[in-house]
Design a protein around this nucleic acid. Structure first.
Length: 422
RNA sequence: CGGGGUGUAGCGCAGUCGGAAGCGCACCGCGUUUGGGACGCGGGGGUCGGCGGUUCAAGUCCGCCCACCCCGACCA
Protein backbone atom coordinates (compact mmCIF):
# COMPACT_ATOMS: atom_id res chain seq x y z
CA UNK A 1 0.00 0.00 0.00
CA UNK A 2 2.81 2.39 0.76
CA UNK A 3 4.81 3.92 -2.00
CA UNK A 4 8.11 5.73 -2.12
CA UNK A 5 9.91 5.06 1.14
CA UNK A 6 7.78 2.15 2.24
CA UNK A 7 8.78 0.82 5.65
CA UNK A 8 11.97 2.72 6.22
CA UNK A 9 13.76 2.43 9.50
CA UNK A 10 15.50 5.69 10.17
CA UNK A 11 17.02 7.72 12.97
CA UNK A 12 16.60 11.47 12.91
CA UNK A 13 18.67 13.91 14.93
CA UNK A 14 17.34 15.51 18.08
CA UNK A 15 19.14 18.75 17.27
CA UNK A 16 17.95 20.45 14.11
CA UNK A 17 18.77 23.79 12.50
CA UNK A 18 16.53 26.57 13.69
CA UNK A 19 15.79 27.52 10.10
CA UNK A 20 13.77 24.31 9.76
CA UNK A 21 11.21 25.93 11.99
CA UNK A 22 11.53 29.48 10.77
CA UNK A 23 10.56 28.49 7.26
CA UNK A 24 7.17 27.45 8.45
CA UNK A 25 4.48 30.04 8.01
CA UNK A 26 2.86 29.12 11.27
CA UNK A 27 2.95 26.34 13.78
CA UNK A 28 0.08 24.16 14.75
CA UNK A 29 -1.88 25.58 17.62
CA UNK A 30 -0.76 24.17 20.95
CA UNK A 31 2.17 22.35 19.43
CA UNK A 32 5.59 23.47 20.63
CA UNK A 33 8.21 22.58 18.04
CA UNK A 34 11.22 23.26 20.22
CA UNK A 35 12.33 22.46 23.75
CA UNK A 36 15.42 24.59 23.81
CA UNK A 37 17.57 26.70 21.54
CA UNK A 38 21.30 26.03 21.38
CA UNK A 39 23.25 29.11 20.41
CA UNK A 40 26.71 28.15 21.65
CA UNK A 41 28.74 25.09 20.74
CA UNK A 42 32.32 24.25 21.59
CA UNK A 43 32.59 27.54 23.44
CA UNK A 44 31.72 29.58 20.36
CA UNK A 45 28.60 31.27 19.13
CA UNK A 46 27.02 29.10 16.43
CA UNK A 47 26.49 30.60 12.98
CA UNK A 48 23.06 29.02 12.93
CA UNK A 49 21.36 28.13 16.21
CA UNK A 50 20.17 24.57 16.74
CA UNK A 51 16.93 23.63 18.41
CA UNK A 52 16.16 20.59 20.52
CA UNK A 53 13.03 19.03 19.11
CA UNK A 54 10.55 17.28 21.40
CA UNK A 55 9.02 15.14 18.69
CA UNK A 56 9.61 14.34 15.06
CA UNK A 57 6.62 16.06 13.48
CA UNK A 58 8.78 19.08 12.74
CA UNK A 59 11.49 17.27 10.87
CA UNK A 60 9.13 14.80 9.20
CA UNK A 61 6.84 17.60 8.06
CA UNK A 62 9.81 19.45 6.67
CA UNK A 63 10.96 16.43 4.67
CA UNK A 64 7.49 15.38 3.53
CA UNK A 65 6.99 18.85 2.10
CA UNK A 66 10.09 18.30 -0.05
CA UNK A 67 9.30 14.74 -1.09
CA UNK A 68 5.60 14.84 -1.83
CA UNK A 69 4.54 16.51 -5.07
CA UNK A 70 1.90 14.30 -6.62
CA UNK A 71 -0.99 12.04 -5.64
CA UNK A 72 1.21 9.36 -7.18
CA UNK A 73 3.67 9.85 -4.27
CA UNK A 74 0.99 8.91 -1.76
CA UNK A 75 0.59 7.33 0.65
CA UNK A 76 3.96 7.57 2.40
CA UNK A 77 5.05 5.89 5.60
CA UNK A 78 8.25 6.31 7.57
CA UNK A 79 9.01 4.28 10.63
CA UNK A 80 11.55 5.63 13.12
CA UNK A 81 13.32 4.14 16.07
CA UNK A 82 14.90 6.99 17.99
CA UNK A 83 15.23 8.92 21.19
CA UNK A 84 13.02 11.86 21.96
CA UNK A 85 13.18 14.47 24.69
CA UNK A 86 10.46 15.83 26.93
CA UNK A 87 10.56 18.66 29.41
CA UNK A 88 9.55 16.85 32.58
CA UNK A 89 9.60 18.52 35.97
CA UNK A 90 9.69 15.18 37.69
CA UNK A 91 10.59 11.89 36.12
CA UNK A 92 9.58 8.36 36.97
CA UNK A 93 11.77 5.48 35.93
CA UNK A 94 10.55 3.86 32.70
CA UNK A 95 7.15 5.57 32.88
CA UNK A 96 8.04 9.23 32.57
CA UNK A 97 11.58 10.07 31.61
CA UNK A 98 13.00 13.20 30.06
CA UNK A 99 14.66 11.16 27.32
CA UNK A 100 13.21 7.93 26.03
CA UNK A 101 13.59 5.59 23.14
CA UNK A 102 10.60 4.74 21.01
CA UNK A 103 9.21 3.59 17.75
CA UNK A 104 7.24 6.23 15.92
CA UNK A 105 5.64 6.28 12.52
CA UNK A 106 4.43 9.04 10.26
CA UNK A 107 2.18 8.73 7.24
CA UNK A 108 0.79 11.09 4.64
CA UNK A 109 -2.34 10.36 2.63
CA UNK A 110 -4.41 11.80 -0.18
CA UNK A 111 -7.71 11.38 1.62
CA UNK A 112 -9.09 11.89 5.08
CA UNK A 113 -10.69 8.43 5.05
CA UNK A 114 -7.34 6.78 4.45
CA UNK A 115 -5.69 8.75 7.27
CA UNK A 116 -8.45 7.84 9.70
CA UNK A 117 -8.19 4.17 8.74
CA UNK A 118 -4.44 4.27 9.21
CA UNK A 119 -4.78 5.85 12.65
CA UNK A 120 -7.19 3.17 13.81
CA UNK A 121 -5.20 0.37 12.22
CA UNK A 122 -2.10 1.41 14.17
CA UNK A 123 -4.13 1.55 17.37
CA UNK A 124 -5.15 -2.05 16.72
CA UNK A 125 -1.58 -3.07 16.01
CA UNK A 126 -0.42 -1.54 19.29
CA UNK A 127 -3.24 -3.25 21.16
CA UNK A 128 -2.19 -6.50 19.53
CA UNK A 129 1.41 -5.99 20.70
CA UNK A 130 0.27 -5.21 24.23
CA UNK A 131 -2.15 -8.08 24.54
CA UNK A 132 -0.63 -10.82 22.43
CA UNK A 133 3.06 -10.15 22.99
CA UNK A 134 3.22 -8.50 26.42
CA UNK A 135 0.09 -10.17 27.87
CA UNK A 136 -1.22 -6.79 29.01
CA UNK A 137 -4.94 -6.16 28.52
CA UNK A 138 -5.70 -2.66 27.24
CA UNK A 139 -8.65 -0.41 26.55
CA UNK A 140 -8.69 1.20 23.11
CA UNK A 141 -10.23 4.60 22.88
CA UNK A 142 -10.22 8.22 21.77
CA UNK A 143 -8.58 10.91 23.88
CA UNK A 144 -10.61 13.79 25.21
CA UNK A 145 -10.02 17.31 23.92
CA UNK A 146 -7.71 18.22 26.79
CA UNK A 147 -5.81 14.94 26.75
CA UNK A 148 -5.16 14.66 23.04
CA UNK A 149 -1.86 15.41 21.31
CA UNK A 150 -1.49 19.11 20.61
CA UNK A 151 -2.21 19.65 16.95
CA UNK A 152 -4.11 16.40 16.38
CA UNK A 153 -7.67 16.25 15.16
CA UNK A 154 -8.12 13.06 17.13
CA UNK A 155 -5.77 11.13 19.38
CA UNK A 156 -6.29 7.51 20.30
CA UNK A 157 -4.62 5.49 23.02
CA UNK A 158 -4.42 2.12 24.58
CA UNK A 159 -4.65 2.31 28.36
CA UNK A 160 -3.35 -0.35 30.74
CA UNK A 161 -4.00 -0.76 34.44
CA UNK A 162 -0.92 -0.98 36.65
CA UNK A 163 -0.73 -3.00 39.85
CA UNK A 164 -1.74 0.02 41.94
CA UNK A 165 -4.79 0.55 39.65
CA UNK A 166 -3.40 3.70 38.11
CA UNK A 167 -3.70 3.98 34.36
CA UNK A 168 -0.79 4.03 31.94
CA UNK A 169 -1.07 5.30 28.41
CA UNK A 170 0.77 2.46 26.72
CA UNK A 171 0.74 3.76 23.15
CA UNK A 172 -0.90 6.48 21.05
CA UNK A 173 -2.03 6.99 17.50
CA UNK A 174 -2.93 10.40 16.11
CA UNK A 175 -5.04 11.54 13.22
CA UNK A 176 -3.39 14.88 12.45
CA UNK A 177 -5.90 15.90 9.80
CA UNK A 178 -4.43 18.63 7.60
CA UNK A 179 -3.07 20.64 10.53
CA UNK A 180 0.57 19.73 10.07
CA UNK A 181 0.24 19.67 6.30
CA UNK A 182 -0.82 23.32 6.43
CA UNK A 183 1.94 24.28 8.86
CA UNK A 184 4.66 22.55 6.86
CA UNK A 185 3.07 22.98 3.44
CA UNK A 186 2.87 19.31 2.61
CA UNK A 187 0.93 19.49 -0.66
CA UNK A 188 0.31 17.37 -3.71
CA UNK A 189 -1.29 17.79 -7.10
CA UNK A 190 -4.40 15.66 -7.52
CA UNK A 191 -5.71 14.09 -10.72
CA UNK A 192 -7.41 17.35 -11.63
CA UNK A 193 -4.11 19.24 -11.31
CA UNK A 194 -5.31 20.95 -8.12
CA UNK A 195 -3.04 21.62 -5.13
CA UNK A 196 -4.28 19.72 -2.07
CA UNK A 197 -3.02 19.44 1.46
CA UNK A 198 -2.11 15.95 2.64
CA UNK A 199 -3.81 14.15 5.52
CA UNK A 200 -1.21 12.91 7.99
CA UNK A 201 -0.96 10.57 10.95
CA UNK A 202 1.63 9.76 13.59
CA UNK A 203 1.86 7.08 16.25
CA UNK A 204 4.33 5.73 18.77
CA UNK A 205 5.14 3.09 21.33
CA UNK A 206 7.97 3.65 23.78
CA UNK A 207 10.20 2.05 26.38
CA UNK A 208 7.37 2.93 28.73
CA UNK A 209 5.98 -0.46 27.68
CA UNK A 210 8.85 -2.06 29.61
CA UNK A 211 7.63 -0.27 32.71
CA UNK A 212 4.14 -1.59 32.06
CA UNK A 213 5.43 -5.16 31.81
CA UNK A 214 7.34 -4.80 35.06
CA UNK A 215 4.39 -3.32 36.91
CA UNK A 216 1.62 -5.49 35.52
CA UNK A 217 3.23 -8.92 35.80
CA UNK A 218 5.98 -8.66 38.42
CA UNK A 219 5.61 -10.03 41.94
CA UNK A 220 7.59 -9.86 45.17
CA UNK A 221 10.17 -12.31 43.82
CA UNK A 222 10.96 -10.00 40.93
CA UNK A 223 10.17 -9.81 37.25
CA UNK A 224 7.77 -12.06 35.44
CA UNK A 225 8.39 -11.65 31.74
CA UNK A 226 5.75 -12.63 29.22
CA UNK A 227 7.02 -15.68 27.29
CA UNK A 228 6.87 -14.17 23.84
CA UNK A 229 9.05 -11.19 24.80
CA UNK A 230 11.32 -12.81 27.38
CA UNK A 231 14.99 -12.72 26.31
CA UNK A 232 15.27 -16.15 27.92
CA UNK A 233 12.12 -18.23 27.76
CA UNK A 234 13.59 -21.24 29.51
CA UNK A 235 16.16 -21.55 32.27
CA UNK A 236 17.82 -24.96 32.20
CA UNK A 237 19.44 -25.93 35.50
CA UNK A 238 21.52 -29.10 35.81
CA UNK A 239 21.69 -30.65 39.26
CA UNK A 240 24.50 -32.96 40.30
CA UNK A 241 26.70 -33.78 43.25
CA UNK A 242 29.41 -36.24 42.30
CA UNK A 243 31.57 -36.28 39.21
CA UNK A 244 29.71 -39.26 37.75
CA UNK A 245 26.41 -37.52 38.29
CA UNK A 246 27.77 -34.41 36.74
CA UNK A 247 28.77 -36.30 33.63
CA UNK A 248 25.45 -38.04 33.02
CA UNK A 249 23.40 -34.98 33.94
CA UNK A 250 25.31 -32.65 31.64
CA UNK A 251 25.02 -35.18 28.86
CA UNK A 252 21.25 -35.40 29.32
CA UNK A 253 20.99 -31.62 29.65
CA UNK A 254 22.83 -31.31 26.36
CA UNK A 255 20.20 -33.50 24.68
CA UNK A 256 17.41 -31.42 26.24
CA UNK A 257 19.06 -28.28 24.97
CA UNK A 258 19.27 -29.70 21.50
CA UNK A 259 15.62 -30.65 21.67
CA UNK A 260 14.72 -27.07 22.64
CA UNK A 261 16.55 -25.38 19.79
CA UNK A 262 13.37 -23.58 18.86
CA UNK A 263 13.29 -21.67 22.15
CA UNK A 264 15.47 -19.06 23.78
CA UNK A 265 17.17 -21.19 26.43
CA UNK A 266 19.60 -20.11 29.10
CA UNK A 267 21.69 -23.06 30.22
CA UNK A 268 22.93 -22.18 33.70
CA UNK A 269 25.90 -24.47 34.18
CA UNK A 270 27.76 -22.08 36.43
CA UNK A 271 29.99 -23.83 38.94
CA UNK A 272 30.19 -22.69 42.53
CA UNK A 273 26.59 -21.64 42.97
CA UNK A 274 23.91 -23.96 44.25
CA UNK A 275 20.83 -24.96 42.27
CA UNK A 276 18.68 -23.07 44.77
CA UNK A 277 20.59 -19.91 44.02
CA UNK A 278 20.05 -20.40 40.29
CA UNK A 279 16.32 -20.91 40.85
CA UNK A 280 16.00 -17.62 42.70
CA UNK A 281 18.25 -15.86 40.23
CA UNK A 282 16.06 -17.00 37.35
CA UNK A 283 12.90 -15.99 39.18
CA UNK A 284 14.24 -12.53 39.92
CA UNK A 285 15.07 -12.09 36.25
CA UNK A 286 11.61 -13.21 35.25
CA UNK A 287 12.42 -16.25 33.10
CA UNK A 288 8.94 -17.70 32.54
CA UNK A 289 9.84 -21.38 32.61
CA UNK A 290 12.53 -23.35 34.42
CA UNK A 291 13.65 -26.86 33.62
CA UNK A 292 15.57 -28.80 36.26
CA UNK A 293 17.39 -31.96 35.38
CA UNK A 294 19.14 -34.10 37.99
CA UNK A 295 20.26 -37.69 38.52
CA UNK A 296 16.76 -38.86 39.40
CA UNK A 297 15.40 -37.34 36.22
CA UNK A 298 18.11 -38.95 34.15
CA UNK A 299 17.18 -42.33 35.66
CA UNK A 300 13.48 -41.82 35.00
CA UNK A 301 13.79 -40.01 31.67
CA UNK A 302 12.01 -36.95 33.00
CA UNK A 303 12.68 -33.30 33.80
CA UNK A 304 11.08 -30.96 36.30
CA UNK A 305 9.16 -28.03 34.84
CA UNK A 306 8.62 -25.00 37.07
CA UNK A 307 6.40 -22.11 36.04
CA UNK A 308 7.37 -18.59 37.06
CA UNK A 309 3.75 -17.51 37.30
CA UNK A 310 3.06 -20.07 40.03
CA UNK A 311 5.19 -19.63 43.13
CA UNK A 312 7.25 -22.29 44.88
CA UNK A 313 6.73 -25.96 44.26
CA UNK A 314 3.09 -25.54 43.28
CA UNK A 315 4.10 -24.77 39.75
CA UNK A 316 6.49 -27.70 39.48
CA UNK A 317 5.61 -30.79 37.50
CA UNK A 318 7.62 -33.72 36.18
CA UNK A 319 7.32 -34.46 32.50
CA UNK A 320 9.00 -36.98 30.22
CA UNK A 321 12.00 -35.88 28.22
CA UNK A 322 10.37 -37.40 25.20
CA UNK A 323 8.17 -34.80 23.55
CA UNK A 324 9.56 -32.09 25.82
CA UNK A 325 9.64 -29.48 23.06
CA UNK A 326 5.90 -29.84 22.68
CA UNK A 327 5.34 -29.63 26.44
CA UNK A 328 7.47 -26.49 26.62
CA UNK A 329 5.59 -24.85 23.76
CA UNK A 330 2.26 -25.67 25.39
CA UNK A 331 3.39 -24.50 28.80
CA UNK A 332 4.76 -21.19 27.50
CA UNK A 333 1.50 -20.60 25.66
CA UNK A 334 -0.38 -21.36 28.84
CA UNK A 335 1.81 -19.02 30.88
CA UNK A 336 1.06 -16.24 28.42
CA UNK A 337 -2.64 -16.98 28.65
CA UNK A 338 -2.67 -17.08 32.43
CA UNK A 339 -0.62 -13.88 32.77
CA UNK A 340 -3.10 -12.16 30.50
CA UNK A 341 -6.08 -13.65 32.32
CA UNK A 342 -4.71 -12.60 35.69
CA UNK A 343 -4.11 -9.04 34.52
CA UNK A 344 -7.53 -8.92 32.87
CA UNK A 345 -9.26 -10.19 36.01
CA UNK A 346 -7.44 -7.54 38.01
CA UNK A 347 -8.42 -4.82 35.59
CA UNK A 348 -12.03 -5.97 35.49
CA UNK A 349 -12.38 -6.27 39.24
CA UNK A 350 -11.02 -2.74 39.68
CA UNK A 351 -13.14 -1.16 36.96
CA UNK A 352 -16.48 0.14 38.11
CA UNK A 353 -19.54 1.79 36.63
CA UNK A 354 -20.74 4.24 39.28
CA UNK A 355 -24.21 5.67 38.85
CA UNK A 356 -23.73 8.89 40.77
CA UNK A 357 -20.89 11.28 41.43
CA UNK A 358 -20.63 10.36 45.07
CA UNK A 359 -19.80 6.74 44.30
CA UNK A 360 -17.67 7.89 41.35
CA UNK A 361 -15.52 9.82 43.79
CA UNK A 362 -15.03 6.72 45.93
CA UNK A 363 -14.36 4.39 43.03
CA UNK A 364 -11.57 6.39 41.42
CA UNK A 365 -9.60 6.45 44.65
CA UNK A 366 -8.55 2.88 43.92
CA UNK A 367 -9.68 1.92 40.47
CA UNK A 368 -11.13 2.96 37.15
CA UNK A 369 -14.59 4.33 36.56
CA UNK A 370 -16.49 4.00 33.32
CA UNK A 371 -19.14 6.68 33.25
CA UNK A 372 -21.29 8.78 30.94
CA UNK A 373 -19.57 12.07 30.31
CA UNK A 374 -20.61 15.27 28.57
CA UNK A 375 -17.26 15.80 26.85
CA UNK A 376 -16.79 19.37 28.11
CA UNK A 377 -13.19 20.33 29.04
CA UNK A 378 -14.43 22.44 31.96
CA UNK A 379 -16.31 19.48 33.34
CA UNK A 380 -13.26 17.26 33.02
CA UNK A 381 -11.12 19.87 34.79
CA UNK A 382 -13.65 20.07 37.62
CA UNK A 383 -13.59 16.29 37.99
CA UNK A 384 -9.80 16.30 38.12
CA UNK A 385 -9.78 19.07 40.68
CA UNK A 386 -12.18 17.12 42.84
CA UNK A 387 -10.87 13.57 42.45
CA UNK A 388 -7.40 13.68 40.77
CA UNK A 389 -8.86 11.43 38.09
CA UNK A 390 -8.87 12.41 34.42
CA UNK A 391 -10.39 10.83 31.39
CA UNK A 392 -7.99 8.21 30.12
CA UNK A 393 -9.90 7.66 26.94
CA UNK A 394 -13.34 7.25 25.49
CA UNK A 395 -13.48 3.56 24.62
CA UNK A 396 -14.19 2.64 21.02
CA UNK A 397 -16.31 -0.12 22.43
CA UNK A 398 -19.42 1.79 23.57
CA UNK A 399 -22.73 0.59 24.91
CA UNK A 400 -25.78 1.59 22.97
CA UNK A 401 -28.03 4.30 24.29
CA UNK A 402 -27.46 7.58 26.04
CA UNK A 403 -27.05 8.82 29.53
CA UNK A 404 -26.36 11.88 31.58
CA UNK A 405 -22.93 13.15 32.57
CA UNK A 406 -21.73 11.64 35.83
CA UNK A 407 -20.83 15.05 37.20
CA UNK A 408 -22.87 17.79 35.57
CA UNK A 409 -25.92 15.84 34.46
CA UNK A 410 -25.83 17.16 30.88
CA UNK A 411 -26.99 14.74 28.16
CA UNK A 412 -24.21 12.36 27.16
CA UNK A 413 -23.72 10.02 24.23
CA UNK A 414 -20.47 8.43 25.25
CA UNK A 415 -18.91 6.82 28.27
CA UNK A 416 -15.32 7.57 29.26
CA UNK A 417 -12.73 5.78 31.36
CA UNK A 418 -11.71 7.92 34.35
CA UNK A 419 -8.64 7.13 36.41
CA UNK A 420 -5.61 8.53 38.07
CA UNK A 421 -2.78 8.31 35.59
CA UNK A 422 0.99 8.00 35.55
C1' C B 1 9.50 27.28 44.43
C1' G B 2 6.31 25.11 48.87
C1' G B 3 5.53 20.82 52.43
C1' G B 4 7.63 16.28 54.50
C1' G B 5 11.68 12.82 55.06
C1' U B 6 16.66 10.71 54.89
C1' G B 7 22.23 11.13 55.10
C1' U B 8 26.47 5.93 59.95
C1' A B 9 31.51 0.22 56.14
C1' G B 10 30.69 -1.45 48.96
C1' C B 11 24.90 -2.21 49.62
C1' G B 12 20.66 -2.27 53.17
C1' C B 13 20.15 -0.47 58.06
C1' A B 14 20.30 -0.19 63.96
C1' G B 15 22.53 3.05 67.36
C1' U B 16 18.01 4.01 73.89
C1' C B 17 19.47 8.96 78.73
C1' G B 18 25.54 12.47 75.49
C1' G B 19 30.00 8.07 78.02
C1' A B 20 34.71 2.21 73.88
C1' A B 21 30.86 2.83 66.32
C1' G B 22 27.43 -2.01 65.51
C1' C B 23 24.16 -5.76 62.64
C1' G B 24 22.78 -8.34 57.90
C1' C B 25 24.51 -8.98 52.97
C1' A B 26 28.94 -8.54 50.17
C1' C B 27 34.51 -9.23 50.54
C1' C B 28 39.30 -12.37 52.29
C1' G B 29 41.25 -17.35 54.59
C1' C B 30 40.42 -22.59 56.05
C1' G B 31 37.12 -26.69 56.22
C1' U B 32 32.53 -29.07 55.21
C1' U B 33 28.69 -28.60 51.48
C1' U B 34 25.58 -28.53 46.43
C1' G B 35 17.20 -31.29 44.14
C1' G B 36 14.96 -23.91 46.81
C1' G B 37 19.20 -18.06 47.73
C1' A B 38 24.75 -23.44 51.97
C1' C B 39 27.05 -23.84 56.90
C1' G B 40 30.96 -23.41 60.71
C1' C B 41 35.28 -20.96 62.50
C1' G B 42 38.57 -16.90 61.75
C1' G B 43 39.47 -12.04 59.43
C1' G B 44 39.71 -7.06 56.61
C1' G B 45 36.96 -2.68 55.85
C1' G B 46 34.49 3.93 59.05
C1' U B 47 36.17 11.87 57.38
C1' C B 48 28.98 8.83 61.41
C1' G B 49 27.07 14.34 54.57
C1' G B 50 30.02 19.25 55.64
C1' C B 51 31.30 23.50 58.73
C1' G B 52 30.80 25.77 63.34
C1' G B 53 28.96 25.74 68.50
C1' U B 54 27.64 23.64 73.60
C1' U B 55 30.18 19.98 76.85
C1' C B 56 35.18 16.87 80.80
C1' A B 57 33.01 13.98 76.65
C1' A B 58 28.95 14.59 70.45
C1' G B 59 26.86 9.60 65.55
C1' U B 60 23.56 11.48 69.57
C1' C B 61 22.22 18.34 71.67
C1' C B 62 22.13 23.51 68.99
C1' G B 63 22.98 26.65 64.41
C1' C B 64 24.13 27.14 59.32
C1' C B 65 25.07 24.72 54.75
C1' C B 66 25.08 20.55 51.11
C1' A B 67 23.07 16.19 48.75
C1' C B 68 19.31 12.78 47.78
C1' C B 69 14.13 10.82 48.16
C1' C B 70 8.69 11.48 48.55
C1' C B 71 4.24 14.74 47.96
C1' G B 72 2.60 19.24 45.44
C1' A B 73 3.17 23.11 41.61
C1' C B 74 4.38 21.86 36.19
C1' C B 75 4.12 18.36 32.12
C1' A B 76 1.90 14.21 29.44
Amino acid sequence: RFKATGHVNAAFPMLIPKSFLEKEKEHVEGFSPQLAVVTIGGGEVLEEPLVVRPTSETIIGHMYAKWIKSYRDLPVLINLWNSVLRWEMRTKLFLRTSEFYWQEGHTAHATEREAVDETLQMLDIYADVAENEAAIPVVRGRKSESEKFAGAVDSYSIEAMMGDTRALQAATSHNLGQNFARAFEIRYLDRENQQQYCWTTSWGLSTRMIGAIIMVHGDDQGLILPPRLAPHQVLLVPIHRTDEERQVVLEAAGRVREQLRGFRVRFDDREGVTPGFKFHDGEMRGVPLRIEIGPKDVAKGTVALARRDRPGKEGRTFVPQEGLDRAVADTLADIHASLFARAKAFQDSNTHTPEDFESFREVVKGGWAIAWWCGEPDCEAAIQEDTKATTRNIPLDQPSGRGTCIRCGQPSTERAVFARAY
